[in-house]
Write a protein that binds this DNA or RNA. Structure first.
Lengths: 190, 190
DNA sequence: ACCTGAACACCGTTCAAGT
DNA sequence: ACCTGAACACCGTTCAAGT
């Protein structure tokens, strides 16, 4: 990549991060290009779709989450590992408002730029769930996609301004439904 | 209201029902007016905001749900009543894709045309929940707004095409988390 | 009283023309 | 190889002008 292109690429990402943090995943692309002081067509050259831009923004966090799943698998007991990872996942998805719905459509569409990242998330979560199920601490009538769906719905709760204050407590309620033991019912109060 | 205005009003509602069923709550208002064979400004005259239009579409169903809550309170045991009403509520909210988020913002905004309907839903659900809590069949660390939030997140799941097939089963999982007894874990399989 | 076409300021997408 | 302005077809909103 040419030096000026690289510079535009990085600057666009930084501006997009700020704007999407502020306005959500459906922020105006025109506005992003404008604030970056760059032609709108240049934004499209670097990120041909909105999802490609989201993917570039989310990739680092997703890679960290995948690594964290592997780490938790060896360092923490199954129940604790699953709950801790779910909490991190929801926090990451909630990083940009409205990104959860994009992930849910992307995971079913192999063409989507977000597809691979979502798949990685789902399989990481599935492994932690399977481990918990094998140890008898998680209900066995749900699979990794169900877990992904429940995590997504919790991230969605976070996105609703009216409900955000209760999202941590409801996280505890839903986690309690996933686990067969009930020692983590109150997860985020205080 | 003048006869021609009444006719436009009713026809717009019928067309809006079809278009929003097809395209979701963020369907193009221009498209609705176009399909109704009416000027766009006429749509705005009858329904000054998108929420006003949604409210007109949802009102009947919401009124039915309120009546149903009162009915269930006298005809069914507390647990059964709560679960049955929740199921109806989710089905109604899912009637139009994307309407759940609109409801969540409306319930916090007294100015919204949807506010009153949402408040009615919440208080109806709260009464059924309180009854179940008093009988010791529902956990006591959640309130009516939490219930509304969980129901909303289940409706959101229904809206995601990839997750819709699992929404009934996950309804069971979440309901199981709300109830203190566990006799309804598998709610929608078969 | 009610309706409408046109204007306005936006949006995402594309592409010929520039350097 | 990379960037850009302009064009295109959309969108929601408003309002003067019509009946």
């Amino acid at each position: 990549m040419r030096a000026d292109a690289r510079k535009n690429h990085d600057h666009l990402l930084a501006v997009a991060d700020a704007v999407i943090t502020e306005q959500g995943a459906d922020a105006s692309l025109r506005d992003i290009a404008r604030r970056a002081g760059v032609g709108l067509a240049t934004l499209f050259r670097h990120f041909p779709t909105r999802e490609a831009l989201l993917e570039a923004l989310l990739r680092d966090g997703f890679d960290e989450l995948t690594a964290r799943a592997a780490e938790l698998e060896t360092t923490s007991p199954p129940e604790e590992a699953l709950v801790a990872w779910l909490r991190d996942f929801v926090a990451c998805a909630h990083n940009y408002r409205g990104v959860t719905a994009a992930m849910m459509t992307a995971i079913e569409d192999p063409q989507s730029a977000l597809h691979a990242s979502c798949e990685a998330m789902r399989s990481a979560g599935t492994r932690l769930l399977a481990r918990a199920q094998a140890e008898g601490v998680a209900r066995t009538d749900i699979d990794g996609t169900d877990l992904f769906a429940l995590a997504g719905s919790l991230a969605w709760l976070h996105d609703q301004p009216a409900l955000a204050p209760r999202a941590d407590r409801l996280f505890g309620v839903v986690v309690n439904a996933i686990l067969t033991k009930s020692g983590v019912a109150s997860a985020g109060e205080g």
